[in-house]
Structure formats: structure tokens, C-alpha cells
């Protein structure tokens, strides 16, 4: 983790590095490291509708707690995970994140990152344009994800399988 000492303020670079580190974990399939980035009640939200405001009473593509995220990543390595034979691979290309909020007094931070997400399996390759919003909190010397919201530019289009994590 990039925040070395507990009494140092979180900087813009810390937040930017956090986002870069996270997508690298996803691209390299380091799922156990990735799960450790989350608060126990952290939620991953991928809306289905453009500018959706309600994740609960309408359908989303994802609105997942830590149990679901753990299930999702553990499944990827299962012996009978048929849709992952052969496995998918993914690749994030991210723009310099916008740091929208640094509140060291509250220990709360908001980072918004635009990115291109590429996922491939067999002869197919898919490109998604995304905006990811990280709501982060400081926990001791580490940053943790309270909520990650991923808006897909064409969220209302019909997709085939999206199997890994943007």
C-alpha cells in the first residue's frame, strides 16, 4: 500500500497509484490481492441504465457484496467452470484519474477514471469504454474501496458474456 505511515496525509499521487495498482491486479489475475482492497461492506456497482440512480429496485449489471465478489473470482479457477475453458484475459488502458475529493480529516476520497477495457477469449475480443468512480476510505495506513461504480458508455447495448472485471 502506498500510504507508508499512519500520520501522513493521503496525497493525490496515493490515490492515482491506487487506481493504477488495482487495474494491474485485475489484468494480472491477482484476485486475492484485489479482494483485500475492499471494505467488508464494500459494493461493486455496474449500472444497466445511463445515469442510473437506484442500484436496489431496478436491474443493474452488477451490484455485488464481498460474498458475491469472492464467489465470482473463486469460480474463475474452478475445475468445472465451463465458460472459462479456455480462460478469458483482460486489459485496462486508463486515463490519468481525476481526483474529485481529498478529505484527510474524514479519511474519504473520490477518484474518477476513464478507461478502455478489453476482454478476450478464443477468437473474440471486446472493447468497452468505461468511467470508474472509486469511493475510497482510509483504514490505518491503507486505502480501501467503499464503492466502485463502473459506468459502461454503451450500458444499454446488448452484450455477450462479460466474464472478468472492468
Amino acid at each position: 500500500m502506498s500510504v507508508a505511515t499512519t500520520d501522513r496525509a493521503v496525497t493525490r499521487d496515493d490515490l492515482v497509484d491506487f487506481v493504477y495498482d488495482e487495474v494491474r491486479m485485475l489484468d494480472e489475475g491477482r484476485w486475492d490481492d484485489w479482494l483485500k482492497l475492499w471494505l467488508p461492506d464494500g459494493m461493486y456497482w455496474m449500472p444497466l441504465d445511463y445515469k442510473q440512480t437506484d442500484p436496489i429496485h431496478e436491474t443493474s449489471l452488477m451490484w455485488e457484496d464481498q460474498f458475491m465478489l469472492r464467489l465470482r473470482v473463486e469460480r474463475l479457477n474452478g475445475a468445472r467452470t465451463f465458460s472459462q475453458k479456455p480462460k478469458s484475459r483482460c486489459h485496462h488502458v486508463i486515463q490519468r484519474p481525476y481526483v474529485d475529493r481529498i478529505d484527510n480529516a474524514a479519511g474519504e476520497y473520490v477518484v474518477v477514471t476513464q478507461m478502455h477495457y478489453v476482454e478476450t477469449r478464443l477468437d473474440d475480443q471486446m472493447l468497452l469504454a468505461l468511467t470508474a468512480r472509486h469511493d475510497l476510505v482510509r483504514e490505518g495506513d491503507a486505502l480501501r474501496i467503499r464503492q466502485k461504480r463502473v459506468d459502461i458508455l454503451n450500458c444499454d447495448a446488448a452484450f455477450g458474456n462479460i466474464q472478468l472485471l472492468p
Partner: peptide, 19 residues
């Protein structure tokens, strides 16, 4: 809504194996 996204979404780990 939970059932719909968990089972029938393009991002669903159940839907993936059906497809």
C-alpha cells in the same frame, strides 16, 4: 432485481455457463 442481475445478466456467473 437481484435475481435478474445474478442469474440473467451478461455479467452473471450463472448466465455465463448457460451461454
Amino acid at each position: 432485481a437481484m435475481y435478474n442481475r445474478m442469474i440473467n445478466a451478461p455479467t452473471s456467473i450463472v448466465g455465463h455457463d448457460d451461454l
